[in-house]
Design a protein around this nucleic acid. Structure first.
Lengths: 206, 206, 206, 206
DNA sequence: CATGAATGAGGTTTCATTCAT
DNA sequence: TATGAATGAAACCTCATTCAT
């Protein structure tokens, strides 16, 4: 998306280094916040001097961008997952997709926290990208529910609100895992909320 | 809690000024982030010079603290609200308390966003205070549900998870209002989620 | 011209400080060059910390700009000088104006050296301004000579080249004074070149 | 003069590479200034990596030195030129030497501009060398004029000032060619100034 | 009480130079 | 010889904080 300056032509090396930089910087950003983390610290955390960072990255903002890109790339593609499920009932599809989504979110705690805190400081274009990724998830579930309704398998009346709640359950697990884990495992959390949602879409509502 | 330095002995003046400072600083922090907001800007926004700020506040961190305190003080006391309801069914109490809680959260968007983003930078003790406020809400609903169960009005099996979901619904409304408002009003959002929760606690689950 | 940032509202103070900054910075730039001179050094030379410089100036480039403006403002206005001469022969006017111009250049050694060396690094707009100032001088003498020709007092054939030579004599005195002073005073230098020029414009050339 | 470090023993290779380096670096220095030009850029302009530069040159300053030396070597030897003229009148010699000098300066725009801007940053010894080259030119013309006076062919009274003016005409053509070319060719410029000088040395002055 | 000039620590970034390969 | 990754000194600039007025 954004073009990040390099002084190296070794594509593979650049890829590796950026991977490390994004990973270690994310940790530091989560611990201390973006502005409180210095380039020197990031360098140290990557086993290099701060000067050397600038061979792989043009600026501190570029690192933020790197984290965003790495995250978006790593996000589960729900469409692909659904396709693999093949021909099953909408109830099954919805349950399985929710489970997959929650598993994905479980892996994303770091980036999610980071974006929740920092995204509003990003340049407009990047905010747009991050936002689009979230909306895509809502849309995915919304569409799924609508299809289920059209197929007369579901009966719910407010698909978008429900879809949004699903997003929120995932988001919440990622961000409040530290608290929730004291009481439930991911599996339990998933089971409970899948049941809750399925109940809502299959129960007659008036 | 924390002792904030003043050069003034006029208690009322200090209170007034701190109120303004906390309010205006919160706005700025939300727009630009804590570290990107300068004392000069805060001073200007308050109609005074940055130097004068230090007559009412010992440091920039103190302002962050002030916002925290102001917020905690301003939070709805659910216990009080419940007491006012008098003697009604648990179903009614739960529904009304949820509605009150959501109304409260609707008023708290600013502080909530701020804490979500910044609380991890606060000193340990203050993080504890903020955390406690959240846990108190979960506990309140958890206790309410347990009481309902004991009174054999409710049948739900995982009170803490449900209580947590309720907290989350409120939190979500505050933080994602900008998106949700395109689709529902606060009243609709409330009605929908109250219904959802009540259904869960009254439906036989296995 | 360019808008230079200040944090102070005290117009007079800002004026004074900028005057000092421009003056001392010019000295340093001449000794060490623009890029080799640090803001810290400039600050020290002005009896303040480098941080304080930024209360009167937005950047190092602004200082360069300040020097340019100060110089242009300080330049002799030849038109004004000519007007004061009143109604005398073109020969007298030309001689007197040359003398005035050379006196002016004698005062301008510093800025002139600085611009000779640094102007090509200035932003386009400022290069234009500086260039215009030089061309104005050439134009002034060119016009004067043409008038003299039309009045049939002068006989020279290449006004622009001669005007350019006059500019050059002045420039040269400023820049090579260190060498020339070993052999002539400003008065002698002036007398000699005025004679040279007048001889050229009054002698029939073919 | 200065001893420049090499890692190579191949004298001819070193000579060739230094020639390229000096030439390309000069271009860059003129465009961007000495300090703003990076070793990387110089390397690229020479078709090698910046690391490799250090096999032929010990430092960035060495490159500056190289340019100085290359220039001094390349300068026209007026003495040689005069010798070739053979036995002709001083008037002819002076005119021809001026023309030769101006032709030489026409070729030297780059180095001259560079020295005008940068020589004051050179170490003392190198400044001396560059200065000596200039003074040699003044001396050459001064001596020539004195000889003409002794031979009673010239009548001028201030040889050194005139000699200096001649230097200046050459210097001026080199440095302001961009402006002068709009109005005169080198030949016209030469003719005009040769005439001017010869007139001065042959006219009775008092 | 209020002002705003002054301080100086500390942050990001650049780049000449080195050196293992 | 040539490469280019790595180093680290040093530059510009910001801004919380102090304090004389």
């Amino acid at each position: 998306m954004r073009n990040i300056r390099t002084t190296s032509n070794d594509v593979e090396l650049v890829r590796q280094r950026r991977e490390i930089i994004a990973k270690r910087a994310l940790q530091l950003f989560l611990e201390k916040g973006y502005e409180r983390t210095t380039m020197r610290e990031i360098g140290n955390a990557c086993g290099m001097t701060h000067g050397n960072l600038y061979n792989y990255v043009g600026s501190k903002e570029d690192i933020r961008h790197l984290i965003l890109m790495r995250d978006i790339e790593g996000a589960t593609k729900l469409e692909d997952f659904r396709r693999k499920l093949g021909n099953v009932s909408y109830t099954t599809v919805l349950g399985e997709c929710m489970a997959d989504f929650l598993r994905g979110m479980d892996r994303m705690t770091g980036p999610l926290l980071f974006f929740d805190r920092e995204i509003y400081k990003f340049p407009r274009e990047e905010r747009r990208v991050a936002l689009a990724a979230e909306l895509a998830i809502v849309s995915f579930f919304e569409d799924l529910i609508r299809e289920g309704i059209e197929a007369e398998e579901f009966k719910v009346c407010n698909p978008i609100l429900l879809a949004h709640d699903i997003l929120m359950y995932g988001h919440d697990w990622a961000v409040r895992r530290w608290f929730l884990k004291q009481h439930v495992t991911l599996e339990e959390y998933t089971k409970e909320h899948v049941r809750l949602v399925l109940e809502l879409v299959t129960t007659k509502t008036n």
